[in-house]
């Protein structure tokens, strides 16, 4: 029994090591590649302690997701993901990480109990989602990859309020209108956010000197307890370092 299982396993491994190229579907292969990268890096984000590494894994994960979008035929969304998410948002995020990456904060550990509870809940949620994802029979059938109309032009037209795409009959999309109003709303929203973010993060003038600068200049502490202690001792109301070269002097 066990011998048979081992034999089957070894042959299947051999089959996987020397894949029969002729019958491989490259679409599926690249899907597996990108999916593994996206999921693996997402997992690494969760497991990593160092915040800079987390940012790096997040970049890889979102980049791989952009690859998945390209594989799904959503070229515009994929390029948008690369441009805005990976190239814009995450650069911003890494920037924030570097502005705050003082030695004590690079890795803030979480207690094992919290991790265990979160893992348990996450596992339960994952099971639920997987059951839901695999419960519908038509979704489990393999897709039909073939040449289709590029979606960027109809998408752009839809964003300015004109629907030029022809959804298949019976699809819930029949009779839907364009997206001019949401498009305008997010434009204004972006402007508001831009102003608000600049206002929130501006370099403020301070009258009092900053006692925390002394804290930042001491040797990086060793244990987690010491990190916490240092933060507690520091009086509130002062940053650990003056404004960066880019933001301009803070004092």
């Amino acid at each position: 029994m066990i011998g048979a299982a081992v034999a089957v396993a070894s042959t299947s491994c051999l089959g996987a090591v020397v894949p029969p190229l002729a019958v491989l579907d490259w679409h599926a292969v690249f899907f597996m590649l990108f999916a593994a990268a996206a999921c693996g890096c997402a997992l690494a984000v969760v497991l990593a302690d160092n915040v800079v590494r987390m940012a790096f894994y997040l970049v890889l994960s979102l980049g791989a997701t952009a690859g998945l979008f390209f594989l799904a035929g959503a070229e515009f969304v994929g390029a948008m993901q690369l441009m805005i998410y990976v190239g814009g948002t995450l650069v911003l995020l890494v920037f924030g990480v570097m502005l705050t990456a003082q030695a004590p904060f690079v890795s803030i550990k979480t207690s094992a109990g919290e991790k265990a509870v979160a893992g348990l809940l996450g596992g339960a949620l994952l099971t639920l989602l997987l059951v839901a994802a695999l419960s519908v029979e038509p979704w489990r059938r393999p897709g039909s990859v073939g040449p289709t109309e590029p979606s960027a032009t109809p998408l752009g037209m839809a964003l300015v309020g004109v629907r030029v795409d022809e959804p298949p009959a019976g699809s819930p999309a029949v009779g839907r209108s364009g997206y001019l109003l949401p498009f305008e709303i997010i434009s204004v929203h972006l402007l508001v956010v831009l102003v608000a973010a600049a206002y929130l993060a501006r370099a403020k003038r301070r009258k009092t000197p900053r006692p925390v600068e002394m804290v930042a200049s001491v040797e990086p502490p060793v244990s987690v307890a010491e990190h916490a202690a240092i933060g507690r001792e520091a009086p509130a109301g002062a940053p650990a370092r003056s404004g960066s070269v880019l933001v301009g002097g803070g004092s």
């Binding site: 515009f76 390029a79 690369l82 441009m83 650069v91 890494v94 979606s151 960027a152």
Partner: peptide
């Protein structure tokens, strides 16, 4: 690519990482 210009500009921006 249907969105080649966009793609090239986007990917070029990743070099900064």
């Amino acid at each position: 690519l249907n969105v080649a210009v966009f793609f090239v500009v986007a990917v070029l921006g990743l070099e900064v990482f």
